[in-house]
């Protein structure tokens, strides 16, 4: 797991939530939407069926016209750590858990309400964590994740309780033609601000294979017979780069921030620059 030193460096930072957000209880950040707290926002004319409790009777007394009061909603932010719990992530479990711990710690340092979830065919959610003192709870939840799921990531996402507007940090390898676009569309449809952290192991970035192999998919048990030679490895690198470019493009199209953690060996050194470049953290 992460060193005390590195966590100490994270103390002065917080997650950049892309402007105003909407969460559960009253808090520190301002929502974009009109709501029901006490801060007055605007008037609009009464129409049949409106809530009579919001009718401004004093305005009627002065003007003889019926108006409805609208309020700003003061709410704190809610951060969701969505962790790909499929078998393909086992090879990069350490990288995934470290990145998740760092991001979760950033959220807790910033005073945000944090929840983490392992997404697979049996989605598992943590309790809501609210302060830095909950960091051990997060660490325990991450360590308990076994990553033996076989289902689609989107299926796991659907089983995950979505809150009102908040920040979702999705950590996955993104394998599958439609996995990333579908998950991002789902989260955007639920009005979430999204950061995609794509994680690939060094072996996946530069495989060291040779000869006639029957490659067995750890997750789906599918078999791909292949004679690996230099030209095949060259073609693999092309396919890999194309895949990564596709993922990045899918994020850009949807206004999703993209953090690539590709074959990282020293996360403590490389994570912060990546997050800063993607404008995920502020206060650096």
């Amino acid at each position: 797991m992460l060193s005390e030193n590195f966590l100490h460096r994270l103390d002065g930072l917080s997650l950049n939530l892309e402007g105003r957000v909407q969460g559960g209880a009253g808090g520190q950040r301002k929502s974009r939407d009109p709501g029901v707290s006490s801060e007055f926002s605007d008037y609009r004319e009464y129409t049949p069926g409106d809530d009579l409790r919001r009718l401004d009777w004093t305005v009627f007394a002065r003007t003889g016209r019926l108006y409805l009061k609208q309020f700003m909603d003061d709410q704190d932010s809610r951060v969701m750590l969505l962790l790909d719990g499929s078998r393909s992530m086992q090879a990069k479990a350490e990288l995934l858990k470290d990145a998740a711990m760092a991001l979760g710690y950033l959220a807790l340092s910033g005073g945000d309400r944090l929840q983490a979830a392992w997404l697979s065919d049996r989605t598992e959610c943590s309790r809501t964590m609210t302060a830095r003192r909950d960091a051990p709870v997060l660490a325990a939840f991450l360590n308990a994740g076994v990553m033996d799921g076989t289902g689609e990531l989107l299926t796991g996402l659907r089983a995950c309780p979505m809150h009102q507007r908040g920040l979702c940090l999705l950590l996955t390898d993104g394998y599958g033609d439609q996995t990333v676009p579908e998950c991002l569309d789902f989260l955007r449809a639920h009005r979430q601000s999204v950061v995609l952290v794509q994680i690939l192991s060094r072996e996946e970035m530069t495989p060291e294979l040779e000869g006639a192999l029957e490659l067995r998919d750890a997750e789906k048990q599918e078999r791909t017979p292949l004679v690996v030679q230099e030209d095949v490895l060259r073609q693999y690198r092309k396919a890999r780069d194309h895949f990564l470019a596709q993922t990045r493009e899918a994020c850009m199209k949807r206004g999703v921030r993209y953090v690539p953690l590709l074959g990282e060996e020293n996360l403590e050194k490389s994570l912060l620059p990546h997050l800063q470049r993607a404008q995920v953290i502020s206060g650096v």
């Binding site: 078998r87 393909s88 992530m89 086992q90 090879a91 990069k92 390898d173 394998y175 599958g176 192991s201 072996e203 996946e204 495989p207 294979l209 000869g211 006639a212 192999l213 029957e214 490659l215 067995r216 998919d217 750890a218 997750e219 789906k220 599918e222 078999r223 791909t224 017979p225 292949l226 004679v227 030679q229 030209d231 095949v232 073609q235 693999y236 092309k238 396919a239 890999r240 194309h242 895949f243």
Partner: peptide, 23 residues
Amino acid sequence: RYVPREVPSTYLWERTVQDMDVS
């Protein structure tokens, strides 16, 4: 006949195979 070997995912390999005839 092929030697079995487990990888995290064959997704990228399948895309590789699609692009070239390697067998």
